[in-house]
């Protein structure tokens, strides 16, 4: 078994709780959708690409984002829905770049399928733009080494895992997730940090992600 290395800095687990803010903005067809995607605040793009993940985290992986879901289920544009849900969110380190990709995907589709502009949502099924307001709080959990880290990882809320893996990287515009940052820089285990960075968290449920992280770290500890 590997020697337990004390980290240079203690890792404090935070949690993120969110409140949903309404904008009063709604789209009835693809033209309006793309126009509003351009205008709305970044916190709205963030909400619609990540809400499903947190709200329906018990479901199977590959959670669709709200844009993909609406385009497929309400407008019946399955192909565009597929293109939107397969945008590789993990490749985007800012909301700005993710927004640009979504806009380009819809515009590209509209250029080759101009009739798609003629599809309208029924009353009550419009796309309602919403924002996420995040409240980030430190928890009482701190880890000095990987053993303590993985023990805590097993019991923190999924909100905490969500914050360190998704929100911190994309919304706070850090280049990597918090776990990889700490394991690489503070514990000094670059290879484990890299393995965690390579994990595509968007294709796991949050509980699945927790299980995977615990497994990877415990395997490392048992070497």
């Amino acid at each position: 078994m590997a020697e337990i290395i004390k980290a240079k800095e203690v890792f404090r687990f935070h949690t993120r709780l969110h409140l949903t803010e309404l904008t009063g903005l709604r789209a009835i067809n693809l033209s309006q959708l793309v126009e509003l995607i351009r205008e709305v605040p970044g916190s709205s793009i963030y909400h619609h690409t990540h809400r499903f993940l947190q709200q329906h985290q018990y479901l199977s992986p590959e959670p669709p984002n709200d844009f993909a879901y609406w385009v497929s289920e309400i407008l019946g544009e399955d192909e565009l829905g597929e293109r939107l849900s397969s945008i590789d969110t993990i490749n985007y380190s800012t909301i700005r770049s993710l927004r640009d990709r979504i806009i380009a995907t819809i515009e590209e589709y509209l250029r080759s399928n101009p009739l798609a502009k003629m599809k309208f949502a029924r009353e009550g099924e419009e796309f309602y733009f919403i924002k996420s307001v995040s409240f980030i709080l430190p928890t009482d959990y701190t880890a000095n080494n990987l053993r303590e880290f993985t023990d805590i990882l097993k019991k923190v809320t999924i909100d905490s895992i969500y914050f360190h893996i998704f929100e911190s990287r994309l919304r706070l515009e850090k280049n990597d997730n918090d776990f990889s940052n700490w394991i690489g820089n503070s514990v000094g285990n670059k290879s484990l940090a890299e393995k965690i960075s390579k994990l595509d968290p968007y294709t796991h449920t949050l509980e699945g992600l927790r299980g995977n992280l615990v497994y990877m770290i415990e395997r490392e500890l048992s070497r």
């Binding site: 409140l19 949903t20 803010e21 309404l22 904008t23 009063g24 903005l25 009550g124 419009e126 309602y128 919403i130």
Partner: peptide
């Protein structure tokens, strides 16, 4: 969300 409309104050769901 369908109950919201443009308002000059913050509105939450």
């Amino acid at each position: 969300p369908s109950f919201s409309r443009r308002l000059p104050i913050r509105q939450f769901l």
